[in-house]
């Protein structure tokens, strides 16, 4: 499994053409207490860069952009009752949705973990 990051602070973990998407630890730390997460429905098509989900914190609502294109297979139902999982375990239990990639070549433009850490160190 390989995990990639976007400049907009989403991560996507890929195994073959199946992928899991979430937001980075840096993103959740900037957002603060998360109170609600709107996730895309299973079966919906998402396009790279489009707003696919919304994360509500105490102070603001923020769009989550799809890091790659494809079809959503399942959304994280646990977030309905425990949106705070995105704070406590953003790159694990706090995942947002799983999807089947339609164009794995899109991943070539994303950062790996080390590049992303270097990227946020500059912010």
């Amino acid at each position: 499994m390989t995990r990639y990051f976007t400049k907009d602070h989403e991560w996507i973990a890929v195994e073959g053409s199946e992928a899991t998407v979430g937001i980075s630890d840096y993103a959740q730390s900037q957002l603060g207490d998360i109170t609600f997460v709107e996730v895309p429905g299973a079966g919906s098509e998402v396009s790279m860069g489009d707003s696919a989900s919304v994360v509500d914190s105490v102070k603001a609502a923020s769009d989550v952009y799809a890091p790659a294109s494809g079809k959503v297979t399942v959304a994280n139902a646990a977030l309905e009752d425990q949106p705070e999982l995105v704070n406590t375990d953003p790159e694990g239990e706090g995942w947002l949705w799983k999807m089947t990639l339609s164009d794995p070549a899109e991943l070539d433009g994303l950062m790996d973990e080390a590049s992303y850490q270097a990227f946020i160190a500059e912010l």
Binding site: E10, Q30, K59, A60, A61, S62
Partner: peptide, 15 residues
């Protein structure tokens, strides 16, 4: 996601 360039979302959205 929609963090702005400085990451100061509170500035951009509310304050």
């Amino acid at each position: 996601m929609a963090l702005n360039c400085t990451g100061m979302i509170f500035v951009s959205n509310t304050y």
